[in-house]
Design a protein around this nucleic acid. Structure first.
Lengths: 109, 109
DNA sequence: CAGTATCCCCATCGATACTG
DNA sequence: CAGTATCGATGGGGATACTG
């Protein structure tokens, strides 16, 4: 905020970090966001692409991500129901950073 | 798997992501690494710069980060004891990415 | 199809006291 | 000073069954 920001402050802002972690952390969080990177997906499709995640956890993670403003949900009044998830503008903004995070895994292989 | 890899795969590698999360996640993890970014620090100093973290949690987080290869521990045979923590080469490698993660918090403010 | 509703486990995080 | 040891609280994550 004040002065030069050529580098990050010596003592990083805990609130900022916690907010980042609130979005990134969680066993499936990153994976789900990455999956939605360039496509709109239906609930069933996400579920199918994520072998291992239980329905409850997937549903609650999606709900949280929508609440966080990372993605948006669009439900169609059809039978059978159809619900689609898409990244928001903010979600798209953080996408490159999220992709970078994968590089960490690569470095520590 | 097959074809062009100009971008990340449609279905990202779960193992890679999990490995990344293993390093990044945890309430204090990111903060500790960032703190060590450009300096070697003693246990007591880290503790002091992290108001709110209990000794047990700090100690176990440091131990884990050393085991992960993110930082290294150097103990001096002195009385009173002195222990210093420094980022490893790999730790330094991921530092820029970690700093980027803070930007996520900024975007969602 | 796209979710809830329940119930449960265990890993993580934490406070406090103690030690080499 | 730099940690363990111990006990306890919390909630993320999961299995299964059910519903609009």
């Amino acid at each position: 905020m004040t002065g030069d920001r050529s580098d990050l402050p010596l003592v990083p802002d805990l609130n900022l970090i916690n907010q980042s972690l609130a979005i990134v952390c969680g066993k499936w969080r990153l994976y789900i966001i990455l999956l939605l990177g360039k496509q709109t997906l239906r609930y069933g499709k996400i579920s199918e692409m994520l072998p291992g995640v239980s329905e409850k956890v997937l549903a609650s993670e999606l709900k949280t991500l929508v609440a966080l403003g990372v993605m948006k949900r669009k439900a169609y009044a059809e039978i059978p129901p159809r619900v689609e998830y898409t990244l928001t503008k903010k979600g798209l903004l953080i996408l490159p950073i999220l992709k970078q995070i994968q590089e960490i895994g690569r470095i520590f292989n």
